[in-house]
Amino acid sequence: MTETQTSIMPLLEVCNLSISFTQYMEGLRQKSLQAISNLSIDVRAGEVIAVLGSSGSGKSLLAHAILGILPSNAMISGKMRYAGENLTPESQASLRGREIALVPQSISFLDPLMRVGEQVRPSMRNGNSSAIQREIFARYHLAAGTERLFPFQLSGGMARRVLVSIAAATNARLVIADEPTPGLHPTVVKETLAHLRELADEGDAVLLITHDIAAALEIANRIAVFYAGTTIEIALASDFSGEAELLRHPYSKALWQALPQNNFIPLQGSQPYPDALPPGCLFEPRCQLSSHECKAAQPEPRHLRGGTVRCFHAA
């Protein structure tokens, strides 16, 4: 994969997306949860961009926001553009399942009482849906009888292929894979990732949401590092190498250095909770480069060496 293969205009642009919820706490207080704050990302046709962040940090909400399926009490601000058009609830409703497809996390996202084939077919609204579904099952090496099975009868690997095939069956231009490889056998992981890469090579834009840095590096062109509800750096996958000297943000560097095959240096502390975000840079409390300006305000994203970073000190 080279830069030239990706088109210039992004298929999806997300600008300053914030999502918050209100939650009742112990006692009599209620708190606002800032799940995602000022997140910006762009996804281009023909590339895989990975959103890399630790488990349970609210990455899935990004996917739900793009698809327009957040719960009604979520408060959302910011801008999203798809193919140059602003995303509105109405346009999202017509895009999801046609232009934008989701590859979900696990088998629990399939209706337990519906045969698998039928769950793949509704995504297709034109042509002979059964024929297309069979063709796609064949492409993903799913035996002919698979369409008659119920989700609980699938093996882990088959389930994965079915989930990817649902996205493939839609002819979507944007595929969002939300943590598609949790706790799977390495060969299944490899296979699933290969399928996603294949979709990108065919011209789709693929947004891969994952906590698995190895998975991200294997297929992604670019990697957006997600921390405490925002992307603190968008780097080229190739930047993750050596002593991390090409990476821009101290957190990305720390992440890379913490890997066993690198220096295995653990990062102290933990991510702030969404109900108690620091006022300045979100990484400031754990950052060795922390200074006055870091405590005062959140750094705006700026371009640096072909990527984006939110850090006053990055150079």
Partner: peptide
């Protein structure tokens, strides 16, 4: 269909919170 409470832990804004009421 609007509510998907399992998705996160969101709660509706009401004047009194749950425990008080």
């Amino acid at each position: 269909m609007k509510n998907f409470d399992a998705l996160s832990h969101p709660h509706r804004l009401t004047r009194l919170n749950r425990r008080q009421s």
